[in-house]
C-alpha cells in the first residue's frame, strides 16, 4: 500500500495546527518589536489549563477559552517584566518557559490518564463532499478553520488596517511611533497578551485534539518549532502557514515512509523535518535576505522625556 496523499495532507494540517497557532501569536508579538522566547511555557500552560477546564466543564469551548486566558496570563508576566520593568526579553522569555513547564506540571497533577471531552469535527456543508479537497480541507474541527481564518485576518490586518500600521510602526521605530503620540508600551503589551492567548490555544489543541490527554512536558519542544517558524515566515502570516504545513508535512511523511518500509535509514528520516526546513529557508532567503525582521525586534523601549 502506498502513501495516500489525501490522508497525509489531512493529517499534516492537524499536526501543524498547534505550531501555526502559537507561531501566529508570536508573529504578532515580534511585529510589535518584542521577542518572547517563552512560547513553549505559554503553550504548555495553555495545554494543562485548557485540559482541566474542559474536563471539569465537559465543554471543549470553555477549555480553549481557559487555555487562551492562561496563556495570556503568563504572557502578562512577561509583558510586565519586559515592558514596564524593562527586563531583558531573551532571558525573560526563557525564564517564562522554565516557569511554565514547572507550573503546568504542578497544576496537572492528578490529570494524567483522563480523556477530555471530544472536540467534534465540523464538516462544512457542501464543501466536505468535494472530492479530495473536501477530505483534506473541509472535514476538520473548528480550531483548524479558526487558525486558518486567523492567518487571513492577521495578514489582512497587518497590511491594510490602521491597527496593523500602528503595530508595525511600533515594531520598526518605536521612537517615532511614540513621537506621533502612540502608546508604545500599551500596544506592545496588547500584542504580548494576544501572543500568549494564541500560544495557549496552540497548547490546548495538543491536549484536547491532537493527543488528546494531559501529560507532563507534552509540548515536547513545539513552542521552539513555532518560534523557528516565525523566523522562517519572514514575519509574514501566509508564509507561516506554509512553513507550519511544510514542517508538519515532513514530520508526518517521514513516519509514513517508515511505516511503509521504505529503505531509508530511520535516523536520517527523523532528522529530515529540521534539515528540510533549514534548506527551504536558505533557498527562500538567499538573495532577498531577511528584510522582514522588525527593526526594533528585541530592543527595549522606554519613553524618555
Amino acid at each position: 500500500m502506498g502513501i495516500d496523499p489525501v490522508t497525509l495532507a489531512f493529517w499534516l494540517i492537524v499536526a501543524a495546527t498547534p505550531i501555526l497557532l502559537a507561531g501566529l501569536g508570536e508573529l504578532v508579538v515580534e511585529r510589535a518589536g518584542v521577542l518572547n522566547l517563552g512560547v513553549e511555557g505559554m503553550m504548555i500552560t495553555g495545554a494543562v489549563c485548557g485540559f482541566i477546564a474542559a474536563v471539569h466543564s465537559g465543554s471543549p469551548v470553555l477549555g480553549f477559552l481557559a487555555a487562551a486566558l492562561a496563556g495570556a496570563a503568563l504572557a502578562l508576566l512577561f509583558g510586565v517584566l519586559t515592558q514596564i520593568l524593562l527586563a531583558n526579553q531573551v532571558a525573560s522569555g526563557l525564564a517564562l518557559t522554565l516557569f511554565g513547564l514547572g507550573l503546568s506540571a504542578l497544576l496537572g497533577i492528578g490529570y494524567s490518564g483522563i480523556s477530555p471531552p471530544p472536540v467534534p469535527r465540523l464538516d462544512l456543508p457542501g464543501l466536505s463532499d468535494l472530492p479530495v479537497l473536501g477530505r483534506i480541507l473541509f472535514s476538520h474541527d473548528a480550531m483548524v478553520y479558526l487558525s486558518v481564518a486567523a492567518v487571513a485576518a492577521i495578514a489582512w490586518a497587518l497590511r491594510a488596517t490602521r491597527w496593523g500600521l500602528i503595530l508595525r510602526a511600533v515594531g520598526e521605530n518605536p521612537g517615532a511611533a511614540h513621537a506621533l503620540g502612540y502608546k508604545v508600551v500599551r500596544i506592545r503589551l496588547l500584542a504580548i497578551l494576544f501572543g500568549g492567548a494564541l500560544a495557549g490555544l496552540g497548547g490546548a489543541y495538543l491536549s484536547l485534539v491532537r493527543v488528546p490527554q494531559w501529560t507532563e512536558g507534552m509540548t515536547a519542544g513545539a513552542g521552539w518549532i513555532a518560534l523557528a517558524m516565525v523566523v522562517f515566515s519572514g514575519w509574514k502570516p501566509w508564509r507561516l502557514l506554509l512553513g507550519a504545513w511544510l514542517f508538519g508535512g515532513v514530520t508526518a511523511a517521514q513516519l509514513r515512509f517508515q511505516a511503509q518500509g521504505i529503505p531509508v535509514p530511520a535516523e536520517l528520516l527523523s532528522m529530515s523535518p529540521y534539515v528540510i526546513t533549514i534548506l527551504v529557508l536558505v533557498l527562500i532567503s538567499s538573495g532577498r535576505g531577511m528584510a522582514g525582521a522588525p527593526a526594533a525586534l528585541g530592543r527595549p523601549f522606554h519613553a524618555t522625556g
Binding site: 500500500m1 502513501i3 495516500d4 490522508t7 497525509l8 493529517w11 499536526a15 498547534p18 495538543l206 491532537r210 493527543v211 490527554q213 501529560t215 512536558g217 507534552m218 509540548t219 515536547a220 513545539a222 514530520t251 508526518a252 513516519l255 509514513r256 517508515q258 511505516a259 511503509q260 530511520a266 535516523e267 527523523s270
Partner: peptide, 19 residues
C-alpha cells in the same frame, strides 16, 4: 527515537493506521 513524546507517538500511530 524517543521514549516519551505524546505528539510524535500519536503521529506514529496515525501513520501506521493509514498504512
Amino acid at each position: 527515537f524517543t521514549w516519551f513524546d505524546p505528539a510524535v507517538e500519536a503521529e506514529a500511530a496515525q501513520a501506521l493506521i493509514d498504512q
